[in-house]
């Protein structure tokens, strides 16, 4: 039988040649959206300079608003490639956010403040603790799934409920005050522009592209997701790879959480981060990651996130009622999966 090869996600629409890492289709969709967006923004400016600065600001807004989910989606991609899923990312974000805010609170209950630790040193400790907390929560989830043999969907559905509810309970009537300087992490202005979250996102994506393509861990993730038994019989420690993927996601959620806390200095513990798991999954799927595991790329997920983000912005510019925007998101996810399934027949 002839092997014609399989393209991933939307790329099948446009890419005639075989490559598991082709993103032509996704890129084309994105470019079309960018052009549309540019047209909708219009050229009604007195100079090219003004137009460009409006265009650029619009872009920075889009990217900044999606940086946190974009970072989480990168971890989600690893998890999905192993054949798993992590529904708890939103709740983990809130839990870590709450813990971080308690540490740096400048009010009477602030943990580090009471120890006499303040300023940049306190921020550093907070960030390190947040990352450790993400790592531990992620690793525990991974252990539940591997050693505990609980299906990823069920295990993370459980941790999602637990983390959200426990966080809300402990944060009742407590509103930590985040020091102003801490907000610089997300709001530092360079040349009048605020783009720090974007830098974090793209830098992490660059590192993870390398991890996914060149490292033992990155390739073992693919092997485990594609054929777990064959990977195991090739000497791959399947459990450790899976735990690693969830732990990595935990770390990325922690980073996203710090970025969120530092953006406005408060967090709505009941609602913050809810729906992030679905947005992250959507970004991965639109970018060509297969929910069956074994296939997916970090670049794809970045592109997928961009497509969703630009589309949101477009719908906004078009004046589509906010309640309908989610429907558009739903449609594009379904379309992406439809093309994927065609590939697998």
């Amino acid at each position: 039988m002839m092997e014609t090869g399989r393209k991933t996600g939307l790329s099948r629409l446009f890419s005639p040649r075989w490559s598991t890492e082709s993103h032509t289709g996704t890129v084309v969709v994105l470019v079309v959206m960018i052009i549309l967006q540019t047209l909708v923004l219009g050229f009604d400016y007195d100079s090219v300079g003004h137009w460009f600065s409006a265009w650029g600001r619009n872009w920075i807004n889009i990217l900044r608003n999606n940086a946190a989910i974009g970072i989480i989606a990168l971890g989600m991609t690893f998890v999905i490639i192993t054949g798993g899923i992590d529904l708890a990312v939103g709740s983990t974000l809130v839990a870590i956010g709450a813990a971080s805010m308690m540490m740096i609170d400048i009010g009477p209950k602030g943990f580090l403040g009471n120890l006499g630790v303040t300023g940049p040193f306190a921020y550093a400790i907070t960030i390190i603790c947040a990352i450790l907390m993400g790592l531990i929560l992620g690793a525990l989830t991974g252990l539940l799934i591997t050693k505990g043999r609980i299906a990823p969907f069920v295990a993370t559905l459980g941790t999602m409920k637990i983390l959200r509810s426990v966080t809300q309970h402990f944060m009742q009537g407590y509103n930590p005050r985040v020091p102003r300087d801490f907000l610089q992490i997300s709001n530092l202005q360079v040349g009048g522009l605020m783009f720090m979250p974007i830098i974090y996102w793209l830098a992490i994506a660059a590192v993870l592209i390398y991890v996914s393509q060149r490292t033992v861990f990155g390739r073992q993730v693919i092997a485990v997701g594609s054929n777990e038994r064959a990977a195991q019989l090739s000497g791959v420690n399947v459990d450790r790879v899976k735990v690693g993927a969830y732990a990595l996601t935990g770390i990325l959620v922690a980073i996203a959480s710090i970025i969120q806390v530092a953006r406005i200095g408060t967090m709505d513990f009941a609602n913050a981060g809810s729906g992030y798991e679905m947005d992250a999954i959507a970004a991965a799927v639109v970018g060509g990651t297969s929910m069956r595991g074994g296939r997916g790329t970090i670049i794809g997920t970045v592109l997928g996130m961009l497509i969703i983000a630009v589309m949101n912005n477009l719908l906004n510019l078009f004046g589509v009622p906010p309640f309908l925007r989610e429907a558009a998101k739903g449609l594009i996810v379904i379309a992406a999966v439809l093309f994927q399934r065609k590939d697998n027949v």
Binding site: T20, Q220, I222, A223, N227, R229, L233, V236, G294
Partner: peptide, 16 residues
């Protein structure tokens, strides 16, 4: 079922 990993190329299957 146990030997080859279908989403990986020849080189990766030969070196895993």
């Amino acid at each position: 079922e146990n030997g080859i990993i279908k989403d990986m190329n020849i080189f990766e299957n030969a070196t895993i």
